[in-house]
Nucleic acid binder design. Structure first.
Length: 824
RNA sequence: GCCGGAGUGGUGGAAUUGGUAGACACGCGAGAUUUAGGUUCUCGUGCUCGCAAGGGCGUGCAGGUUCAAGUCCUGUCUCCGGCACCA
C-alpha cells in the first residue's frame, strides 16, 4: 500500500539524498582551521579498496563518526579525514586476471567505496582525501625511506626470510601467522635473499617504555599484544671458550644462575656459527641435517610436540664456571634469529634441553633442588625455586634473585659475561617482489653499490605494466621492465639497475595520518606546522587485527620522525578504540557459509540511520555484533517515533523552556546529563538506550501529560534531535528542520545541562533491614538524612521486619537508601 | 605453558566511588485496532511458593570482608583472544 506524503513520517531515502547534498555544498565537516576553537583529530583506519564497503566498515566508521560529531557539537574544530590504502596484492591479481592495470581496479573500487561512504552519512572532510598509490603520495613514502636510509635505519641484508610460494613474495615476520601467509593462507617456507630492512629493533626499548603513557587510553589487550611481540627478556650473556677457536661462543640466558648445570651447547643449524664450528668428520651429517631443517615448514618447526632432532658438531666448549668440557650440537629448536643463535643447555631445568638430552643421551646435572625429584629420573625439568646444589659459590643459597646477582658478579669479575637484555622483535623486512607498491628509490651501481635516488628525482614512478607482465615469477615484475630498470648511476653515470622490489604496503600506512594534515603539500611529506596544530591524533578507531602490525609500525615511524626533528611528540595515537566484528549466526560472514549480510542491501531496506543506530545499540563498541541477534526493523520504528516528536511540537522556535513544565525538564536534563557522561566513556550503546527513554518520556508528555504546546516539550524534542544526530544524522536533520531550526543540526551546540534540574528528580529510597530490602519509598531528591530515617522507620513493612526489636544502628544515604540494623 | 579479557533472564545487553540486579531493546504471552495477515497501541514477562497479601532464591562455582557484594579479597572452573621450542 502506497504511503501518502505525511509529515508524521520521515522518508529515509529522500532525507539521505537531501542532506548529503547539503553537507557537501556547505562544507559542513571541513574544519575551520582558523585557531578560533580548540582542535581535535578523529582518525579512522583507512580502507583497502577491495570491492564495496562491508558491514565491518560500517561499524568501524559509525563509531568514529559518533565521536567526531559529538566533539564538533562540543565546540571543537574537528579534523576527520578519509583516504585509501590503495597499494596491494589483490589489485595486482585482478589485473593479471583481466589483462589490465592494477590502477584500473583500484581506482574503480575507490570510487565505489567513496560513494558508499558519502551515503553512509559520515562527517568526513573530503577535501583531504588521499590515496597511497598516487605518485603525489608515494613520492613522500620514498622520501621518508631515504631519510631512514640516511640515518642507518634502512639497510640491506642477506638472510633466510619468510617466503610465500603462492604470492611469490617475501613476508615480514608479522605477516606470518601460525606458519602460514596471513593473506592467502599458504604455508610459508624459507629462502635466502638479500632484502631491505628497517631497523625497528633499535627502537624496541622505546616502543616498550612509551606504552606506559598509553595505559588506560588503548585497550589492554593491544598493549599486551605489543609487549608480547616486542618480547623483552632480561638475563645475561655468557662467553664459552672453544678450544681451537679464537672467538668464544656467546650465548644469552635468562637463567645464568643455572650455569653449573650447563652440560652441553646447542647452536642453530642455519646460523653461520654452525657452519664454522662443524668438524670435517661431522660435516656430511650436519649438511644433511641443515637441508632437512630448511625444508621443514614453519608449522612443523613450531610444533611443540615434535621430537627433538639434532647433530653433534664434533667440537667442545669450556663451561666458564666449572671448567667442564661440554659438547656442541646443532639443533633446530634453537633459532638463528633470536639471541645469539646459540644456547647453553641446562637439561635439569629446561624442558626443551631435557628432551634433547634424553633423546641423545647427554648428561643431566641438577643444580637447583626444588624437592620435586631429579629431572634426570623424572624426565620433568624443574623451573621453580629451590636450594642450589652442585653450584660452587651458590651452594646452599635458596633465593633465585640473589643467585642470579651473585653469578652475574662472578661472570663480570672473570670477564666472561654480563647482564643483557634481549628482544623478540626483529627488524622489519620491507622488500616485496611485487608490482603494485611503492618502488624502493635506490639504484644499484656496480661501482657505488646501493645509491639513493636524488630527492629531486622523486617520485620513482611505476612503469605501465599490465596483465601477464605482472604474473609472479619469484622476482619482482619490475625487474623485467628493462626500460625502467636500466638507468645510469646517479654518482658516476655507469649503467646501473633500479631496485626492482617495492615496499611492504605497511610502509605506506605508517604515515598517512601525517599527510592528512597537509594533503596537497608539494614541498614536503607533511608540513610540520600543520602537524603541530592537529597531532597527535586524539582518537583512532579501527580493528584489532592491526594491534601489532600497523600500530607498531606507525609508532616506530613516529619515533623516527621525532628523532629527525620533524615533530615534537613520540606517540601518534592518544586514544585507541577497537570496534568489534560484525558476524552472523555466531560465525564470521563468509561466502562458503553463505551467511554474508550485504551492507548496501541493509541500507536499501532500513535506511542508513537505522543501520547505523542498530550497530551502535547492539552492544559496547568493542564487542562483536551478531547481526542475527539485532533488529534493524525495530530501530526503524524507534526512529519514526522519535521523528514524530518533532512533528508534534507546536510551540514557537525559541520558546523559553524555563516557562515550561519542570517535571518534563527534570527528565530531559537528567537523561541528557547521563548521555553526556556516557559519551565521554564511549558507552554508545547506553547512549542510545537513554535516547529511547527520552523519546518514551516525551511521547508520554505529549499524549497524556502537558501536551505538545509546552516549551519543555520543545526542549525535550530538540535535545532528542541533537543526541540522535550523532548516530542517526539524517533523521536528526529532518527533526531539526521540522522543529523550525535552521540547518544544519551539526552546526548547533551540545546542550548545556542544568545540574539542579538534573539532580532534582524524585528518587526511590530503598529501606533495608538487616541487609534485606523491606520497603521502597518515593522521596524528594533533597530529603535530609533525618527525614529519610524517620520515613523509613515509620513504614509498616519495616516495622514488621523489625518485629519489635530495638534499632542498633541506622545508615542513611539520602535519598537512595536507609539501612537499619536491629539489636540482637 | 605465558600474557590479556570475559562469565548477569529465552536473546543482545544495563548497573561511576560497594547502596533498588536485569535499564533499554529483541523475543514471547494477553488484550485493543484490523475482513485476515502485517503495522500500530496497551499491559505483562528472572526463577520459585501462593487465589492473594506476602515470602524464599538469584549475577560460573566455593569461601571471606561488610549494615550492604555483579562490584572488594582468597581459592577454583569455564570460555574467548594473543603469543609460544624466544633460551
Amino acid at each position: 500500500m502506497a504511503e501518502e506524503p505525511n509529515r508524521r513520517q520521515y522518508d529515509a531515502a529522500a532525507a539521505q539524498t537531501k542532506w548529503q547534498a547539503y553537507w557537501a555544498d556547505h562544507s559542513t565537516f571541513r574544519p575551520l582551521d582558523d585557531g578560533s576553537k580548540p582542535r581535535r583529530y578523529v582518525l579512522d583506519m583507512f580502507p583497502y579498496p577491495s570491492g564495496d564497503l562491508h558491514m565491518g566498515h560500517a561499524e568501524a566508521f559509525v563509531m568514529g563518526d559518533v565521536i567526531a560529531r559529538y566533539w564538533k557539537l562540543c565546540g571543537y574544530d574537528v579534523l576527520h579525514p578519509i583516504g585509501w590504502d590503495s597499494f596491494g596484492l589483490p589489485a595486482e591479481n585482478a589485473a593479471i586476471k583481466n589483462n589490465a592495470h592494477p590502477a584500473d581496479w583500484t581506482y574503480a573500487n575507490i570510487d565505489t567505496q567513496a560513494r558508499s561512504l558519502h551515503r553512509y552519512g559520515l562527517s568526513f572532510d573530503w577535501s583531504r582525501r588521499l590515496h597511497t598509490s598516487d605518485p603525489e603520495y608515494y613520492r613522500w613514502t620514498q622520501w621518508l625511506f631515504l631519510q631512514f636510509y640516511r640515518r642507518g635505519l634502512a639497510y640491506r641484508k642477506a638472510s633466510y626470510v619468510n617466503w610465500c610460494p603462492k604470492d611469490q613474495t617475501v613476508l615480514a615476520n608479522e605477516q606470518v601467522v601460525q606458519g602460514v601467509c596471513e593473506r592467502c593462507g599458504t604455508t610459508v617456507t624459507k629462502r635466502q635473499l638479500t632484502q631491505w630492512y628497517f631497523r625497528i629493533t633499535d627502537y624496541a626499548q622505546r616502543l616498550l617504555d612509551d606504552m606506559t603513557a598509553l595505559e588506560g587510553q588503548w585497550p589492554d589487550r593491544v598493549l599486551a599484544m605489543q609487549r608480547n611481540w616486542i618480547g623483552r627478556s632480561t638475563g645475561a650473556t655468557v662467553r664459552f671458550t672453544v678450544p681451537g677457536r679464537t672467538e668464544p661462543i656467546t650465548v644469552f640466558t635468562t637463567r645464568p644462575d643455572t650455569l653449573f648445570g650447563a652440560t652441553f651447547m646447542v647452536v642453530a643449524p642455519d646460523a653461520d656459527l654452525a657452519q664454522e664450528l662443524v668438524t670435517d668428520d661431522q660435516r656430511a651429517e650436519f649438511e644433511a641435517y641443515l637441508e632437512r631443517t630448511k625444508q621443514a615448514t614453519e608449522i612443523e618447526r613450531q610444533s611443540t610436540e615434535r621430537p627433538k632432532t639434532g647433530v653433534f658438531l664434533g667440537r667442545y666448549a669450556i663451561n666458564p664456571v666449572n671448567g667442564d668440557s661440554i659438547p656442541i650440537w646443532a639443533a633446530d629448536y634453537v633459532l638463528a634469529e633470536y639471541g645469539t643463535g646459540a644456547i647453553m643447555a641446562v637439561p635439569a631445568h629446561d624442558q626443551r634441553d631435557l628432551d634433547f638430552a634424553r633423546a641423545f643421551d647427554l648428561p643431566v646435572t641438577m643444580v637447583i633442588d626444588t624437592g620435586e625429584g631429579d629431572p634426570a629420573q623424572t624426565g620433568v625439568a624443574t623451573a621453580g625455586d629451590g636450594v642450589y646444589v652442585n653450584s660452587g659459590l651458590l651452594d646452599g643459597l635458596a633465593n633465585k634473585a640473589e643467585g642470579i646477582a651473585r653469578i652475574n658478579a662472578q661472570l663480570a669479575a672473570d670477564e666472561v659475561g654480563e647482564p643483557t637484555v634481549t628482544f623478540r622483535l626483529r627488524d622489519w623486512l620491507l622488500s616485496r617482489q611485487r608490482f603494485w607498491g611503492c618502488p624502493i628509490p635506490v639504484i644499484h651501481c656496480p661501482e657505488h653499490g646501493a645509491v639513493p635516488v636524488p630527492e629531486d628525482q622523486l617520485p620513482v614512478e611505476l612503469p605501465d605494466l599490465r596483465g601477464a607482465a605482472l604474473a609472479p615469477q619469484g622476482t619482482s615484475p619490475l625487474a623485467a621492465a628493462t626500460d625502467w630498470v636500466n638507468v645510469p648511476c646517479p654518482i658516476c653515470g655507469r649503467p646501473s639497475q633500479r631496485d626492482a622490489d617495492t615496499m611492504d604496503t605497511f610502509v605506506d600506512s605508517s604515515w598517512y595520518f601525517y599527510r592528512y594534515c597537509s594533503p596537497q603539500d608539494e614541498k614536503a611529506a607533511f608540513d610540520p606546522a600543520e602537524v603541530a596544530k592537529w597531532m597527535p591524533v586524539d582518537q583512532y578507531v579501527g580493528g584489532v587485527e592491526h594491534a601489532i602490525l600497523h600500530l607498531l609500525y606507525s609508532r616506530f615511524f613516529t619515533k623516527v620522525l621525532f628523532d629527525l626533528g620533524l615533530i615534537d611528540f613520540q606517540e601518534p595515537f592518544q586514544r585507541l578504540l577497537n570496534q568489534g566484528q560484525v558476524i552472523n549466526q555466531g560465525k564470521a560472514m563468509s561466502k562458503s557459509l553463505g551467511n554474508g549480510v550485504d551492507l548496501g542491501a541493509q541500507i536499501d531496506e532500513f535506511g542508513v540511520d537505522a543501520v547505523r543506530l542498530t550497530m551502535v545499540f547492539a552492544g559496547p563498541p568493542e564487542d562483536d555484533i551478531d547481526w542475527a541477534d539485532v533488529s534493524a526493523a525495530a530501530t526503524v520504528r524507534f526512529l519514526q517515533r522519535a521523528y514524530r516528536l518533532a512533528a508534534d511540537v507546536t510551540s514557537e522556535v525559541g520558546a523559553d523552556p524555563a516557562t515550561g513544565d519542570q517535571a518534563v525538564r527534570r527528565v530531559t536534563h537528567r537523561i541528557m546529563g547521563e548521555i553526556t557522561d556516557l559519551l565521554e566513556i564511549r558507552r554508545f550503546n547506553v547512549v542510545v538506550a537513554r535516547l529511547m527513554e527520552l523519546v518514551n518520556a516525551t511521547r508520554k508528555a505529549i499524549d497524556t501529560g502537558v501536551g505538545p504546546a509546552d516549551p519543555a516539550v520543545r526542549e525535550a524534542a530538540e535535545f532528542t534531535a541533537i543526541g540522535l544526530s550523532l548516530v542517526a544524522p539524517y533523521v536528526a536533520e529532518e527533526m531539526w528542520q521540522e522543529l523550525g531550526q535552521p540547518p544544519s543540526i551539526a552546526d548547533t551546540t551540545w546542550p548545556t545541562i542544568d545540574p539542579q534540574l538534573r539532580a532534582a528528580e524524585a528518587a526511590t529510597m530503598v529501606v533495608q533491614v538487616q541487609g534485606k530490602i523491606r520497603a521502597k519509598l518515593t522521596v524528594p531528591a533533597d530529603i535530609t538524612d533525618a527525614d529519610a530515617e524517620a520515613m523509613a522507620l515509620a513504614d509498616e513493612n519495616v516495622q514488621r521486619a523489625l518485629d519489635g526489636r530495638a534499632v542498633a544502628k541506622v545508615i542513611v544515604r539520602a535519598p537512595k537508601m536507609v539501612s537499619i540494623v536491629p539489636a540482637k
